[in-house]
Design a binder for these strands. Structure first.
Length: 550
RNA sequence: GGGCUUGUAGCUCAGUGGAUAGAGCACUGGCCUCCGGAGCCAGGUGUCGGGGGUUCAAAUCCCCCCAAGCCCGCCA
């Protein structure tokens, strides 16, 4: 919020001094070193390029104007090649703390979304097996993004797209069918590219119990029965895993439904009319090469089956034109990156501005076991199930680990290490700060403090370096929410929380909150509660709990 | 062979074109008669993969090269 205000003030100063300049791109940021002020701007250095003047002279002109803003700045200085450094007035920080105490759960909200409708589609794993830890990363990431976007003023829907038709489903059905035969004693040979996991046996058992004459039916019919049953059972399992992982979707969107409603045919027909679809070698092709893809892509095979691409075309048409989303965010596994160009191409063909679809590629989670790296594969049954990891490590720790990295950084998951309830786990560091403050408040009440009084505490008593540092973090929280949203980067919140918790622990160890001086104690309690509110709100954005005691 | 992503301290990773590139872990040694020791304090590390270029300023932008992962099917 403060950054925003300073930006506006600088913009006005530029307008006043240099009427010929219309728009420039400058930064107002927190400098790396404390002695460069609370905030700093490179505006003079940027203007140098346009004005061809000495940057220090430009900085001087501007800073003279900025010094007029006495309510905001304690000090304004020029440094180095022409940076303007600002020291904020403490009164500003005190005001923000009071706000935090008053606003509580909603402190830190920013309205950059203006109520725009956003659809975040994530996980969307094929219902061919249980969720593994790779899916967990996407689940944590998408859910956190949704929470952050809501906090940043967007109207958010979370959606899981179910691939409930197509080749993989047929293979799934056939896998169950074969295992059913095996269970009744028939000799079978189980193809390598069928689903190898043990859960297939479990489903086969259910199938045998449910359909008594299953193996007497024709193969086609039997496989279809197995397929539908398997999808249902696996999907239930997936929903359950996600719920336990604190991820709840607003919509479960069926791919099959796109065909049943005739939408696929309708949209393809529309593309045909525009001359973007042609027939060749008995198949239907979309001219994606016209829109930046390397080559044209098949939408209907010569076997007369639609490809997944056909579904995706209809699905995204529907997102924008039928449901009217202003922004669609798709979280895909990085192995799908080859599909980005063709989908973006389709959007272009349908005249949808490309910035309305953001595709975030989540890098793979590799499994580190016995010093050996393995990649996840549902089909080969090489994976660690999400539910297993969550059971052994806990939701909070798993989510926090997943959310402490940028999505395009690959993650080697050392299962043995993560399973340890190690105290070094950073999530406990942050949660511990929260629990500590809760305990502090209890203690305060026990010795006779009225916690309502903190709203009227004399905050000017907060003068220690650590106290001012904490006040500044509290004031900066909304900046980080904004950054996390605009950069689709929940881990910005994670880093912010680790920093805040660190300063709080330092402070707590060095100073006594509840001491002889009642007024000072009350001010310190107010500060602590402000920190607690920010930690709580931040953890909330990550979907991690804020325990009162641990 | 082409494409996407990545390469920063021993390890895991931050780093929105800016000032002396930062955390955590690991390692060593200290700190509770006192609000929670899942904590704190003190110790030191870098050819930012390499080479060019753009810029007043490059880990960051552009080009080339090297390495790793992934993708390159009328599979998903």
């Amino acid at each position: 919020m403060i950054r925003r205000r300073i930006r506006e003030i600088i913009d006005r100063s530029i307008q006043k001094s240099y009427t010929e300049i219309d728009k420039i791109n400058f930064e107002v940021e927190k400098p790396k070193r404390e002695d460069f002020g609370d905030l700093s701007t490179n505006v003079a250095l940027v203007l140098q390029g346009v004005l061809k003047e000495n940057p220090r002279k430009i900085a001087e002109d501007l800073s003279n104007q900025l010094k007029e803003e006495r309510a905001l700045f304690e000090r304004v200085e020029i440094a180095g090649p022409g940076f303007i450094n600002f020291w904020l007035r403490n009164s500003l920080l005190f005001e923000t703390l009071k706000e935090a105490l008053k606003d509580g759960d909603s402190f830190g909200k920013v309205d950059i979304g203006g109520g725009k409708k956003v659809l975040i589609e994530f996980v969307s794993a094929n219902p061919t097996g249980p969720l593994h830890i790779g899916h967990g990363r996407g689940a944590a990431y998408g859910d956190a993004l949704a929470r952050i976007f809501k906090f940043a003023g967007y109207e958010v829907n979370k959606e899981y797209y179910i691939n409930d038709r197509g080749t993989q489903m047929d293979i799934l059905g056939a896998s169950v069918y074969l295992r059913a035969k095996e269970l009744v004693g028939e000799r079978i040979s189980f193809p390598e590219d069928y689903y190898q996991g043990d859960y297939i046996y479990e489903i086969a058992k259910v199938a045998l119990r449910l359909f008594e004459d299953l193996l007497k039916k024709g193969e086609r019919e039997a496989i279809a029965l197995c397929r539908e049953l398997a999808i249902k059972i696996i999907l239930e399992d997936i929903k359950n895993d996600l719920k336990n992982f604190r991820v709840e979707f607003d919509q479960w969107y069926s791919e099959k439904g796109l065909y049943e409603s005739g939408l696929v045919e309708e949209v393809i027909e529309e593309l045909k009319k525009r001359g973007l679809v042609y027939e060749s070698e008995g198949a239907l092709w979309f001219k994606s090469s016209l829109f930046g893809d390397e080559k044209d892509r098949v939408i209907k095979k010569s076997s007369n089956d639609w490809t997944y691409f056909a579904s995706d075309i209809a699905y995204h048409y529907e997102k924008f034109f039928k449901r009217g989303y202003d922004l669609a965010i798709n979280l895909w596994g990085a192995d799908h990156h080859g599909y980005v160009a063709r989908l973006k191409g389709v959007l272009k063909a349908m005249d949808i501005p490309s910035e309305k679809l953001v595709i975030l590629l989540i890098q793979m989670v590799n499994l580190l076991e016995g010093g050996e790296l393995k990649s996840m594969s549902t089909r080969k049954a090489e994976y660690v199930e999400l539910k297993e990891l969550v059971r052994e490590v806990g939701v909070d720790a798993v989510r926090f680990i997943f959310l402490s990295r940028s999505q395009d950084s690959p993650l080697d998951f050392d299962v043995e290490l993560a399973k340890k309830h190690s105290a070094e786990n950073p999530v406990y560091y942050v949660q511990y700060a929260h629990a500590r403050i809760c305990s502090l408040k209890e203690k305060a009440e026990a010795v006779g403090y009225d916690l309502e009084e903190i709203h009227r505490a004399d905050l000017t008593l907060l003068r220690e370096k650590e106290e001012l540092a904490l006040l500044k973090r509290i004031a900066e929280f909304s900046d980080h929410v904004e950054l996390a949203a605009t950069q689709f980067a929940p881990y910005k919140i994670t880093y912010f929380l680790l920093d805040l918790a660190g300063i709080f622990h330092e402070y707590y160890n060095k100073f006594r909150i509840l001491g002889e001086d009642k007024d000072l104690s009350l001010a310190r309690l107010a500060l602590s509660e402000g920190c607690r509110i920010v930690i709580n709100n931040g953890l909330n954005l990550l979907g991690v709990s804020s325990p009162n005691r641990m």
